[in-house]
Write a protein that binds this DNA or RNA. Structure first.
Lengths: 191, 191
DNA sequence: CTAAATTTGTACCAATCAGTACAAATTTAG
DNA sequence: CTAAATTTGTACTGATTGGTACAAATTTAG
């Protein structure tokens, strides 16, 4: 039984990890008390809405993290060629080179899709649109930028699954490298 | 309550669909009896090993389906340029244009990964290797063929997730089209 | 037709589940 | 220091879970 964390952010991070590992239905309150070190009474005091509220709070936290660490750098002024590399670096760290699943992606595969569908769709849409806008700023036509953004996001998702399935982080890393080559314009000298 | 199917293959297909929808832990015996129309006693008579045996049988069935419909055409003699297109067509039908999840992929995201890890890894490895060999037969160097095969499989996985998350089969279709362009050599005239 | 095989669905078991209630203990804030 | 806030963990609830056992009913095979 770990010592209870006094840091709400850490509690949320632990909660998120349990949901990633066990999914929504597979996560029991018992698992959560064990992982967080919080008593059952505390959990319900903190999250009066129960398990659903825990998940909702975690998803909101993830959304916020992405806004801060992925979208904001892509939207920064002045736009620099390193912002996309920063996104890829941040993604690599966040998904632990593919060994850590994307909770939104996990939820998209199951029947809880309905329960959290708005949040899931919003997450992916925002990511894609933000990256699209970023690609347009380096003079890619909208249509192409959108498709490339979609491809980027789905490749990251697929790379997570495959590198977990084969227990091989190199797969994820190769994908990131390849995405980097596609997303960043060639140096003018190479032309 | 549906009429019990007398066809074991149909029972397995229904079982597979329940597992896809609810995952391993989220699938209860009650759900299975409802979906298949079989009584509880029948289920345990057919699968004395219980739920784990049901899943194992389903996974074996999936593996067999892939061997028949995906790998065999890729391995056929003489090798024809349409074999890869056939694979992409079969994949599109099988995954219902991205709306039907890949059960092996789902299992790879959760903690049941350990329980079925061999089967999961074997499924993906076989797919990749079979496609690699097929690409080598059209004169792609092994290294490139392998990476392209990996990319194909992970893109399919990612496209499933994204098109489900955004409830948009067009995403899946675009991915398939793009993979087709990458996987099939350009007509010599285009060169 | 008969015997074997299969199906059925209930009772039962022990375990687990999410959630509610709550008194006692502990911590925090002022 | 005191009062408020938080934590704790148990008892309780009704429900669900996977699995076992099994007699009666039905189907199948020869």
């Amino acid at each position: 039984m770990p010592r209870p964390s006094k840091d709400p952010a850490q509690t949320l991070a632990i909660l998120a990890e349990v949901f990633r590992e066990y999914g929504y239905e597979g996560t029991s309150i018992g698992l959560i008390t064990q992982a967080t070190g919080l008593g059952k009474g505390s959990l319900y005091n903190l999250f009066p809405g129960g398990k659903a509220e825990m998940m909702t709070t975690v998803l909101t936290d993830i959304k916020t993290w992405f806004e801060t660490h992925i979208y904001a750098p892509l939207q920064a002024e002045p736009h620099t060629p390193t912002s996309i590399q920063s996104m890829l670096d941040a993604v690599t760290r966040y998904f632990h080179s593919g060994q850590r699943v994307c909770l939104m992606g996990v939820l998209a595969t199951g029947h809880q899709r309905d329960q959290f569908s708005e949040t899931i769709a919003h997450y992916f849409t925002t990511w894609i649109e933000t990256l699209t806008a970023s690609l347009e700023r380096i003079h890619l036509p909208h249509h192409d930028a959108r498709h490339l953004a979609e491809e980027t996001v789905l490749q990251i998702q697929g790379a997570i699954i495959l590198s977990r399935a084969l227990n091989d982080p190199a797969i994820f890393q190769r994908t990131i490298t390849q995405l980097h080559n596609k997303l960043t314009p060639p140096a003018p000298k190479a032309k």
